[in-house]
Simulated assay, not measured.
Amino acid sequence: MRAGKVPADSKLLQPIKIGNTQLQHRIALAPLTRYRNDENHIVNSFAQRYYGERAATPGTLITSEATGVSLQDAGRPHGPAIATDEQQAAWKEVISAVRKNGSVWFQQLWGQGRASEPEYQKKRGYKYRSSSAVPLSEGGAIPEAMTEKEIQRFIDDFVASAKRVITAGGDGVEVHGAHGYLIDQFTSDSVNKRTDKWGGSVENRSRLLLEVVKAACAAIGPERVAVRLSPFATYQGAVSSDIVAQYSYIVRELKAIGPLAYLSLVEPRGDPETMFSNDPDVEGQNLDFILNIWNNHSPVVVAGAYTPASAAAVLESHYAKWDVIVAFGRAFLATPDFVWRAKNGVAPNEYHRESFYTPATEVGYNDYPFSADYIDARRNEVLESLA
């Protein structure tokens, strides 16, 4: 099956540097939580194949699934963590598979907060927690507000996990400050009702995110730290009443910390709450105010349900004056040779939505094929090299 071929001179296929690492094009694998880990939150060995295949085109930015910085922060069954030596050792093998193919690895790190499963946390003896005692949904379990000591422990856990990623061979970490998870539960005034230094004002609600980033930068260097934000997302009820004020402050403060590896932004139409709508209501919403403040301080990764063709077009039009990389999710998870296909005009595989989150199994994970064209091209490359 053929698709529109991305022109060889497209900006989408031009190299770009993030931190200390060089990308050979501007197509990235978006962070995709898949719940394929074992019951101890250790990444299964078959993830080596999954991530290694998607790194098959050298110089690809591979962003991991969101990974808990402690066992408490892996708040659902079969979610990943990188908080123990065994977990770190397993991730080291996955990272090695990516690095062997000449690609770049950033590990997304998070805490889930009230997005955890309350009963799962209770069964393991962990507190079901958030910024404030505000339930995820009406009538749902009410989380406990984190104490000062717990907040500081979360920051320390984040730093420890960031160090583990680098020790395991990763190029950097991506701080998950988006989509209604723990850090975003502090940022959003719809969730954060605190009256101490961690809540109330725009500045106070931004504090946890900024303290995490500062601590991670001090530990591993700002060139190895990235941040993901979803300013317009309403997913999991995390909404800011003044988006421009909240995120203008955050981005200015992030910029002052130092030249981060990159800033990752979810476009309004990439909000999980609305992205499956045929016509999401995003009229007048865009990320321009953030990109203007950031002003090419370092590259920006954007995600917004793009195809290779539409991504190539937007880099030449709306994002022409900025250093932008485009992250792909559903099509990339279903297509191990996604980058090669984009370059050669071969359509991606159809994804199977029902098996996105099938726990601890390769079904819906490693059962997507390479294209026959890619296989033929690889065979010819090997034969030519032998000749």
Results as ranks from 00 to 15, higher is better:
Y365G: 06
L386M: 04
A377T: 04
T234K: 15
V213F: 08
P143E: 07
S240A: 14
A360N: 15
A347L: 10
P231T: 09
T335M: 02
E211Q: 15
T358Y: 14
V346W: 00
D376S: 12
G79M: 15
K100I: 05
G170V: 09
A238D: 03
R269I: 04
D196G: 07
A327W: 02
N40F: 08
Y262H: 11
T234P: 06
P31S: 09
I250T: 11
N380G: 03
A160C: 07
N366G: 00
K321A: 15
E65N: 13
A30G: 09
S317H: 05
L383K: 07
E93T: 14
R49T: 13
A83D: 09
R330K: 12
G177W: 15
T358W: 05
T307S: 04
A56C: 13
V159D: 01
K197A: 12
R114M: 12
H179I: 05
F158R: 04
W340Q: 00
S131W: 13
D367A: 02
A74I: 03
S310V: 07
Y368Q: 01
A233V: 07
R26M: 06
K255Q: 03
W198E: 04
E253I: 11
N204A: 10
A3C: 04
I27V: 10
I293Y: 07
A377W: 12
L136P: 02
N344W: 01
L265D: 01
V282P: 04
Y262T: 10
F370V: 04
A387I: 01
E53P: 02
V314G: 08
L29F: 11
A377L: 02
